[in-house]
């Protein structure tokens, strides 16, 4: 079975009258406002191992060039998984405000 052939998800060609949802960011708004602590990346300590990116439940970790990371604060919910999983202590949780 070839899983990389024609994608199922295509732009709709006909007009849908049924209320069909399409994947788009912010389906419940800017979830960054839920946060009490924000993750701050220390790019000097970051080695680009991508462990935080792999574990992030929200897909708010952005992969930069050379696979170092930055964080999308608009949507990050501040769970702290990235800081806990980082093997190099390159992410610190800092209180908001």
């Amino acid at each position: 079975m070839n899983v990389n052939s024609k994608p199922v998800l295509e732009e709709p060609k006909t007009v849908f009258f049924a209320p069909i949802s399409h994947p788009s960011p912010g389906s419940v708004g800017k979830t960054g406002t839920w946060r009490t602590h924000k993750p701050v990346v220390d790019l000097d300590k970051c080695t680009g191992c991508l462990i935080c990116w792999l574990y992030c439940p929200e897909d708010t970790i952005i992969r930069l060039e050379n696979d170092k990371v930055s964080i999308d604060y608009e949507y990050c919910k501040g769970c702290g998984i990235c800081a806990h999983q980082c093997p190099f202590d390159a992410i610190q949780m800092v209180p908001e405000g």
């Binding site: 912010g26 708004g29 769970c79």
Partner: peptide
């Protein structure tokens, strides 16, 4: 691989 800003709780294993 997932749309940010969904209704999951912070630290949700299902979205992971």
């Amino acid at each position: 691989f997932l749309m940010p800003g969904n209704a999951a709780c912070p630290g949700c294993p299902e979205t992971m």
